[in-house]
């Protein structure tokens, strides 16, 4: 670009906007166009999430009941506070990033270094938080049964309306069933760890505890999950086929199977973006310390990586809305 600028003799040969028609360097422009295409990728994911949700609009899990954990507060029902905290962390690391870009414009190396460091720390906290969120999601809390048709049956106390954990009321029944390893049996198939309680144990425990009823995944007019009567529950539990604890890519205790799939896929893809953003930030951080951009005469690389970092923040704003709020 610079070379052509010097080679061209007279101004009139240049395009209207000069040699940088859009007043942006090649690298910055390409970062923007990458962001546009990446934004469309995330759009595809989030819209397909919306598709599945609208398709199952009367049986989708309620986010407030799924994400209720907060560090060091065991057993306290704290919906949303943790993700809100994560959102603030990410917005704040976006601010330190833009401050680094600004310091770069004024060629203040020390300030750029400091703000880049803060940004990296913020990003690391966010990725760590997301890992913790995943851990809770995968581990589950109450457990549930799944019917042949893939419906999730959860248990609540009829009087208090509180959720009941299957591990607590299930009866321990001796069973010969062991986890199937690939080393014994044909076709070298294996299975994941067996649930801590057996299906028969849960059924028996349910019959024994008369104050328990089943909560289905169907939503009523008020947007609450439908709770069956004791008689209906006793009939319904006979349809159950599996014990589900926590979540994996096949089934989850929270409700619709697609819910966990989309959760893993979209937050995972976003978390991967944050992780690569942190790695790129670290590379740029060391380049700043080594004085690469000081010698180059400008800090445009900081600006470019900043664009990417803000984009990650921007995506999170949407993921936050569509997964946790709406």
């Amino acid at each position: 670009m610079e070379v052509t600028a010097k080679a061209s003799v007279n101004e009139s040969q240049l395009w209207g906007g000069g040699n940088k028609p859009l007043n942006a360097s090649y690298g910055k422009m390409m970062m923007w166009f990458f962001i546009v295409s990446d934004a469309l990728t995330f759009t595809g994911f989030l819209v397909s999430y919306g598709f599945s949700r609208f398709k199952n609009i009367n049986s989708w899990p309620i986010a407030d009941e799924v994400f209720t954990h907060f560090p060091f507060l065991h057993g306290v029902d704290a919906p949303m506070y943790y993700v809100a905290l994560m959102t603030f962390v990410l917005i704040f690391s976006s601010v330190t990033m833009v401050l680094a870009v600004d310091a770069g414009h004024h060629m203040q190396k020390a300030k750029v270094t400091f703000y880049m460091l803060l940004t990296i720390i913020g990003g690391a906290i966010f990725v760590g938080s997301q890992a913790w969120e995943w851990k809770n999601f995968i581990k589950g809390e109450y457990g549930a049964l799944e019917t042949k048709g893939g419906q999730i049956l959860q248990f609540v106390n009829a009087e208090t309306g509180k959720r009941a954990a299957i591990q607590e009321f299930a009866v321990g029944i001796e069973t010969d069933r062991t986890t199937h390893q690939s080393s014994n049996g044909i076709w070298y198939e294996n299975e994941t760890a067996l649930p801590t309680v057996s299906l028969a144990g849960v059924k028996e425990g349910f019959v024994a505890n008369t104050d328990l009823v089943i909560r289905t995944q169907q939503l009523d007019e008020k947007g609450q999950k439908t709770v069956l009567t004791r008689e209906e529950s006793l009939l319904k539990i006979e349809e159950s086929m599996y014990v589900v604890e926590g979540a994996n890519l096949i089934r989850n205790e929270y409700g619709n199977r697609l819910f966990a799939d989309f959760f893993f896929f979209i937050t995972g893809f976003h978390g991967f973006h944050v992780l690569s953003g942190v790695v790129i930030n670290i590379i740029i951080f060391f380049n700043v310390i080594l004085g690469t951009y000081e010698r180059r005469g400008h800090y445009e690389m900081v600006e470019k990586v900043g664009l990417y970092w803000h984009f990650v923040d921007l995506v999170w704003v949407f993921v936050f809305t569509f997964f946790y709020l709406v």
Binding site: V47, G50, F51, R53, F54
Partner: peptide, 9 residues
């Protein structure tokens, strides 16, 4: 997509 999903529902 949302219109289509609503139809499927």
């Amino acid at each position: 997509l949302l219109i289509e999903a609503d139809y499927i529902f």
